[in-house]
């Protein structure tokens, strides 16, 4: 029973970070690169993949730092006299240093061992060191008090996937909207903001996903149904776009 509830915890966190607490739509993290690099689907995919990659590395790493160095009493493994230390005021500087170093390191390693991957991800890596989504991932990991290393890894990957989905969706919409008759002052940035707002409203409907009932079985059903729902949503959005397209043509 404990193992199933453990799995449930993972599944819940996974879907929660992708849909309910989506980095872009719920907390506006990484908006700068989200707006700047979403003109084409291909580049958006590259950046999204790089974000998943870097979040999957930095969140668990910063979790270890937080647990064994930064938290109040975390230094107790050095000896009982260290129990009173609370270094949490250093977390900003430690987290950002870890992120900057890891990004640099990942860039070097990827360049050395996989030139193909480097060609597709490489140009985005330096951009990512200052992406709010990456630091935000670590800071939310800390403030939400994620309990285990496994959950931290899960959180990093799933919030990365959420970000990836968001930038993929907006890039696809922006590619299509080029053919629509948008009022001149709204073109480009303005309409992107408003579309993102509307998408965020859409994503709010996922909020009911994990509060469906107090029985575990109910929870399981709701989480299973999520995937097709998301696809339907995208299809609906696409068909809306084509309708607009048809009208303008």
């Amino acid at each position: 029973m404990t193992s199933t509830s453990h799995t449930m915890e993972h599944v819940e966190l996974f879907f929660k970070s992708i849909f309910i607490d989506n980095m872009v739509f719920a907390t506006f993290l990484g908006m700068c690169s989200y707006l700047a690099v979403s003109k084409k689907v291909s580049t958006a995919v590259g950046l999204g993949a790089a974000v998943i990659f870097v979040l999957a590395i930095t969140v668990p790493l910063n979790w270890l730092l937080d647990q064994y160095i930064l938290q109040e009493g975390a230094l107790v493994w050095l000896g009982p006299e260290f129990a009173a230390y609370d270094l949490s005021f250093l977390s900003f500087i430690m987290f950002i240093a870890t992120i900057a170093t890891m990004v640099q390191l990942v860039e070097i390693v990827v360049e050395k061992f996989s030139p193909a991957l480097y060609n597709s991800l490489g140009i985005f890596l330096p951009l990512i060191a200052v992406n709010c989504a990456i630091l935000g991932g670590s800071l939310f990991m800390q403030s939400r008090e994620i309990a285990t290393f496994g959950l931290a890894l899960n959180y990093g990957v799933s919030s990365g996937i959420g970000w990836f989905l968001a930038i993929l969706a907006i890039a696809a919409i922006r590619e299509k909207i080029r053919y629509s008759n948008v009022p001149a002052p709204l073109r480009g940035l303005g309409i992107t903001f408003i579309i993102t707002g509307l998408m965020a409203i859409g994503f709010m409907s996922f909020g009911g996903m994990l509060t469906g009932g107090d029985e575990e079985t109910v929870n399981e059903e709701t989480t299973v149904n999520v995937q097709p729902e998301a696809e339907q949503l995208e299809q609906v959005e696409n068909s809306d776009d084509t309708a607009v397209l048809a009208e303008t043509n």
Partner: peptide, 26 residues
């Protein structure tokens, strides 16, 4: 939270209506 985005979108709209030089391509 979504309304923050839409309010900023409207600010951009007003600003660019007043200053046509800022209008960008699609």
């Amino acid at each position: 939270s979504p309304m923050a985005l839409i309010v900023v979108g409207i600010i951009i709209w007003i600003q660019r209506t007043k200053n046509k030089a800022l209008i960008e391509d699609n």
